[in-house]
Amino acid sequence: MDLEAVRTFVAVVEAGQFQKAAADLSITQQAVSKRIATLERTLGVRLFTRAPRGAELTIDGQAFLPHARELLLVVERAGASVRPGHRPLRVDVITSRSAQSNLMRGFHRAHPDVDLTVMMLLDIETAVTALRSGAIDASFRAVTAPGRVLPEGIESVRVLDEPLHLLIGPDHALADARSVTLAQLVGHRIWMPGIAPGTEWGAYYDDLVAEFDLTIEATGPNFGSDALLDTIADTPALATFMGAHTRLIWPADHGLRRIPVTDPTPVYPHSLLWHRDNPHPALVSLRTHLAAMTAEQEATGTWTPDWAAPR
Rank of each mutant, 00 (worst) to 15 (best):
S179D: 14
G202M: 08
A142H: 06
L167H: 07
L174E: 12
D207I: 00
G134H: 09
D213F: 03
F140S: 03
V209A: 09
G202N: 11
G134E: 06
H165T: 04
A183K: 15
G153V: 02
A218F: 00
L174F: 14
Y205F: 14
L150I: 03
P193N: 10
L185Y: 08
D207M: 06
R132K: 10
F223C: 11
E217R: 05
V180F: 11
L164D: 06
Q184V: 02
V209M: 13
A218N: 06
L150A: 07
G147S: 05
L167R: 11
H188L: 10
N222M: 08
S133F: 11
I190E: 01
V149S: 11
I195Y: 07
P170N: 04
E217S: 14
A142P: 03
I190A: 00
R158T: 13
I195H: 05
A196G: 00
L164T: 01
R141M: 08
D206E: 11
T199N: 09
L164Y: 06
I216R: 05
L185N: 09
L185C: 05
V180A: 14
D206K: 10
R148Y: 09
G198V: 05
S139V: 05
A138T: 02
W201E: 15
S139C: 08
L174W: 14
P151E: 03
S139T: 02
S139F: 03
I190F: 02
S179F: 14
P151N: 07
A177N: 12
P221W: 01
A183P: 03
A175T: 14
T199C: 11
L185H: 06
D206H: 09
G153R: 06
A173E: 15
D137E: 13
A138S: 04
A210C: 01
P146N: 00
G153S: 03
L214Y: 04
I154K: 02
V209L: 08
I136C: 07
H188E: 11
G153H: 04
A173Q: 15
L166D: 06
V180T: 13
D137K: 02
L182P: 04
G198R: 13
A145N: 01
V180K: 10
V180Q: 07
D207L: 05
E162Y: 02
E211P: 00
T144W: 03
A196V: 14
A177Y: 12
I216M: 10
L174Y: 12
L214H: 02
A210F: 00
G198D: 09
T215W: 02
Q184Y: 01
R132M: 12
G169A: 08
S179V: 13
L182Q: 05
L214F: 03
A177C: 14
I216Y: 11
G169D: 04
S133A: 13
I168S: 13
F140L: 07
R189K: 11
P170L: 09
P163R: 02
P146V: 02
V157L: 12
L208M: 09
N222E: 07
A203W: 08
W191R: 07
E152A: 07
A196P: 00
